[in-house]
Nucleic acid binder design. Sequence first.
DNA 1: GCAAAAGTGTTTATCATACACCCATGT
DNA 2: ACATGGGTGTATGATAAACACTTTTGC
Lengths: 221, 221
Amino acid sequence: MEQKQQIKLAVDCIIFGFNNNRLELLLVHRGFEPEKGKWSLIGGYVGNEEDLDDAANRVLYNLSGLENIYMEQVRTWGEANRDPSGRVVSTTYSAMILKSEYNAELVNKYDAQWFPIDELPELIFDHRAMVDSAVRRLRRRVRNYPIAFNLLPEKFTLPQLQMLYEGILSEPLDKRNFRRKVAQMNYFIKLEEKDMSESRKGAYYYRFDEALYAKELNFNL
Amino acid sequence: MEQKQQIKLAVDCIIFGFNNNRLELLLVHRGFEPEKGKWSLIGGYVGNEEDLDDAANRVLYNLSGLENIYMEQVRTWGEANRDPSGRVVSTTYSAMILKSEYNAELVNKYDAQWFPIDELPELIFDHRAMVDSAVRRLRRRVRNYPIAFNLLPEKFTLPQLQMLYEGILSEPLDKRNFRRKVAQMNYFIKLEEKDMSESRKGAYYYRFDEALYAKELNFNL
DNA sequence: GCAAAAGTGTTTATCATACACCCATGT
DNA sequence: ACATGGGTGTATGATAAACACTTTTGC
């Protein structure tokens, strides 16, 4: 305990996306030993004068080209031997991005790939536990905070929103009950426009009004 | 980003106690600059081969003499300039201890003192934010997980338990509703013995049965 | 007998759940 | 006209909240 501390500090990002009506994770293929060939979260070391939060944002930016992404710190993993190549403590952040907006070239460069949340490949180290903890946290938070919208475009339909929630919670929801709840929260603004791409009848677009929400702060889906 | 990383990693403990029917925090008086004279959480650096959780337990043990204390990681504070004396990232842990069981000598040696949660002195750095975040977490968790018992002796009365919850949540609770909820959870075992120290009538002691709880896992107070 | 804290039920409102049919449209 | 997904209301059970008096006992 008395000699100089030699612990490296890293961040790892659990990157959620909602693609093809499923909750997915963006993982990178590990091209070097140890555990070469497995998949891992995207991570990186924290800079000496860099805020921890900023480090997470930078790591995500380098991979996706996306800035100002919604991120939450999840927890810090500090078992002494979690990384066999040395002492590394890692703080996990969960992020939500839109597949449509990120830079596919960059992602290809890093050998990254989306995986549905229930079909994950083998992950290095303790990354699987990290993912599980982030998913549990997401499921808990998504019912009481309007964070899931970060996985949808600005305009979205109620069938889309419901499928998102079903994907995140991994359970079917009753359509009428779901829609009643949405109707009660008056910061869901129904637009005139319809999405005609999914059905003949078309589904009305909605948007989430941040300012109206800020006045009420009650949310429950 | 390329030069050697030089970040120190620390843990800080938010130590809760329930004394005189109030929720209190154990703080230490800072005897050195900067911010000499203010109060702070008890903390310490993480050992090179020490699990993060173990570091938190060691720090608490050194102060209190208590081992196997219930602790939870809260979150990690990593702003680059949170500590003016150098780059230190700190993970906070919240602990719950019984005033009656800890080593008062040790605590005196460290110039530590209990403060009611709503009468805290000025704290160093970002410790106030750390405390607030730990209190919020405690208030959230205490309703759904039977963790508050770590603040009571093994045998406790329902008036005690209710005052504990009122102290934690900082709001009055209806006695009859509270007791009905307790009655519904059948891992609260009513003992024959009464506590005669607080009233003439005496209040029955109860104990919390871990094993019975493990079978049900539903808790809500 | 009275002071002081422990203990006990009922009513009401609110919320969650279960459930099935009509609508609008493009082909 | 029909196939496809979008949209709508009601009844029932469960849970939470409000509320006041009786019991025990030491003095």
